[in-house]
Design a protein around this nucleic acid. Structure first.
Lengths: 254, 254
DNA sequence: TATGAGTTAATGTCAGGACAAATTGCCCGT
DNA sequence: ACGGGCAATTTGTCCTGACATTAACTCATA
């Protein structure tokens, strides 16, 4: 099989890089490359210029260019092979898998999310919640339960537990805006989250809230999120309508 | 809040690093660090030595040490904050999310997987399969359907489609060993995979195969896997018993 | 006592170079 | 025509060095 010819990347892709701005150079480059790929300007299978030529042409060091490329490899947009080069992956690409909230997901895909707060109470942590949030059993936690709709259709029931520091979250705020949005506004920087996705039958109450037949299946997700301090911030127990929602995940091996 | 004291990492953690072996140095370091964390030798919240001191003590450069740490940050085991240092995350997190097969997952967790091949046929690709595998509609593909059991209990129905290059996969081999194992043996190096996880009702046939009541819920996963060449290797449509299986995912934001 | 500026310590970014390893493709000899 | 070996190409790893940015701590001053 003949080797793909190298493609010289158009110079205007990398015009006006801000060398002194707050945005890292490698990030600017990877962003523009990502746009070029997702927009179809660089079709699947395209073989990029090699790292050294690219770095010389941009007036940057090879590690910087290399890091930009690595970002996209991690996202599953590019594939690197030594001795060969770097190629755009075949197959209709991706959509990144990041630590996002349902609210933001829906908004990005152009739907109108709305929320009804069903429960909003400060309760002592039971054993399971205490273990997940790494707090003392019995310590005060905020328990909220929300019904999330998209374009007026019930989509999910969201049960969340938060540790003492966040028990003062306002009920009205939660009605209007997403939990993650509110937490980020308070300075929380999310770092890692552990999710478990499963399925089961709806309970009668869930079926009623979600407006589905009593015997329906439910898609469940349980998540514990940690901030960049390594502290547990949130335990979520969510229940989705499986005909309207699914999880999309991109796995990358190294 | 007082700052965590720095912990001097025990020197024997890093004895006998192979400088000339085929295993990269950063990988050796990150492996040993990972072992120390998962074994509990470095408890949650421990603040590591700073990068510069560590690199000097190991006789390595800072980028090498930094890369080793980055590996563990990506796995969700460590958290870095500039101005502060690097800490082991709170919470009993771990378990990496890699591109593994169900077979390997089960074996690792100490269960005995077994497989029955229900369907093994070469058929022309229909539109959906052709689109997923990036081949011409109507081109030959291998369709297999397997029932996977663990310790004798039915666990999942696995439907897979593979492109023409792999239509000669042997039925008896598939009975004995995992699909991914066989593909790796042929030199396939998996790179990225796109998964969609959802839920629905079992069909009557699925309920019978999985030995569950007819009205049961099913956990479904659809996956397209690509090799390091960017070529689509496999399309899987899987159906799991939700009372026996769930997906565990670790999300890391940057 | 409280506030604010400066100091210190740590990670984040970037440069430039060197060699190793893998893969391809060409050339040459048979 | 065919196969083997060599050279070119390209990414992988590792090094040294420098400066920027952020957060915590210290200490002087109002």
């Amino acid at each position: 099989m003949a080797r793909q010819p190298e493609v010289k990347l158009p110079a205007e892709l990398f015009r006006d890089l801000e060398r002194s701005g707050p945005v890292p150079l490698y990030y600017q480059i990877s962003n523009r490359l990502e746009d070029a790929i997702t927009s179809g300007q660089l079709p699947a299978g395209t073989r990029l210029e090699n790292e050294i030529a690219l770095s010389e042409r941009l007036g940057l060091s090879r590690p910087t260019v290399r890091r930009a490329i690595q970002e996209l490899v991690d996202k599953g947009l590019l594939v690197r092979r030594r001795g060969i080069g770097t190629q755009v992956v075949h197959g209709q690409v991706s959509r990144k898998v990041e630590l996002t909230s349902l609210n933001e997901d829906l908004r990005e895909s152009g739907r109108r999310p709305a929320t009804t707060v069903l429960v909003h109470e400060v309760v002592p942590a039971d054993d399971a919640v205490a273990r997940a949030l790494v707090v003392q059993p019995g310590s005060p936690t905020l328990h909220i339960r929300r019904l999330r709709t998209a374009d007026g259709t019930p989509l999910a029931i969201l049960d969340n537990h938060l540790p003492e520091a966040y028990t003062d979250l306002d009920r009205e705020d939660l009605q209007e805006r997403g939990l993650y949005e509110l937490l980020r506004e308070r300075g929380v920087v999310f770092s890692v989250a552990k999710q478990v996705i499963g399925a089961r039958h709806c309970t009668a109450k869930e079926a009623e809230l979600l407006d589905v037949p009593k015997t329906s299946a439910a898609l469940t997700m349980s998540r514990t999120a940690f901030d960049n301090n390594g502290m547990a911030i949130e335990l979520g127990e969510h229940c989705y309508r499986p005909d309207l929602y699914s999880f999309e995940i991109m796995l990358v091996s190294r």
